[in-house]
């Protein structure tokens, strides 16, 4: 975006961004230091050798993948409708959806619990996936709709004139252009799902279904709190998310090229 023709201005920009990023880096360094305090790398080995780890990891992956698929599909369709289709009461429904964003999780627990019991979902993946998706969708729809508003209506109408159905033009015209926001939604949903603590705690009872956020409980008791291993567990838990973010990097960029399509 910024153009830096001279060598000097390029260096200035580089120094500027480095300075800006330092306050973000500082707590991370302290954290990693903390995870190596005491027994050093042994902390990581202890965390990695927890017998439940592979199971918890698998459960988190399953829950995250299904939630992401649900959220992405529902979001893209809904955002498309809210942005490009003229439906009666469109704005009303959009705002009804947004209002759903506002209640804190703690407050929703009791009603959600009785619902999941009645539906027989308690202690299954779905008892976590459905509330997670339900709480995430309003947020992602808002983002995706904003993004789709930025796509010229002309593109969509041109496709319609060429004889494409609404469905076809959504699939072949709109969807490819939304890759950057889709990537953002995948990343953000992954973070929410992967890091959620309260829902798995309350809804998943047996160790066979519990998630990776339950890992630190082995190092924190009533009157004990092994911070070094909690931090090591946090580093290990964060790695898959960082890797996923890096893998999706290209999608964020590809939007630039797609924008030139018109």
């Amino acid at each position: 975006m910024f153009e830096t023709r001279s060598r000097a201005s390029r260096i200035v920009l580089q120094v500027l961004v480095t300075l800006m990023v330092l306050p973000f880096l500082f707590p991370l360094i302290v954290m990693v230091q903390g995870s190596l305090a005491g027994q050093g790398w042994e902390n990581y080995r202890t965390v990695l050798s927890q017998p439940e780890l592979p199971l918890f990891f698998r459960n988190s992956v399953i829950i995250a993948l299904i939630t992401i698929a649900l959220v992405l599909a529902a979001t893209m369709l809904a955002a498309f409708a809210f942005s490009k289709l003229w439906l009666r009461g469109r704005e009303v429904f959009f705002w009804l959806l947004l209002a759903a964003l506002t209640l804190p999780e703690v407050i929703l627990l009791t009603p959600m619990f009785s619902i999941s019991l009645q539906l027989g979902l308690y202690d299954t993946y779905l008892s976590v996936i459905l509330p997670l998706a339900a709480l995430q969708i309003p947020f992602t729809v808002l983002l995706a709709r904003t993004f789709m508003n930025g796509i010229p209506d002309g593109l969509f109408e041109a496709a319609r004139i060429d004889g494409a159905t609404t469905w076809q033009s959504f699939l072949h015209v709109i969807l490819p252009l939304t890759r950057p926001i889709a990537a953002a939604i995948v990343v953000l949903t992954l973070i929410t799902t992967w890091n959620d603590y309260l829902l798995p705690l309350v809804f998943l009872q047996s160790p066979e279904t519990q998630t990776i956020t339950m890992l630190p409980q082995f190092f924190v008791g009533q009157f004990s709190n092994d911070q070094t291993k909690v931090l090591a567990a946090a580093v290990i838990t964060a790695l898959p998310e960082i890797i996923a973010y890096l893998c999706l990097q290209k999608l964020f960029e590809r939007g630039l090229a797609a924008g030139a399509l018109k």
Binding site: T110, Y197, V202
Partner: peptide
């Protein structure tokens, strides 16, 4: 063992139901 900070949140609905 349930972490103390999640104890009430987890126990309350569980006791109120049959689970």
């Amino acid at each position: 063992q349930i972490p103390i900070d999640g104890w009430e949140a987890k126990l309350r609905p569980a006791l109120a139901s049959n689970t």
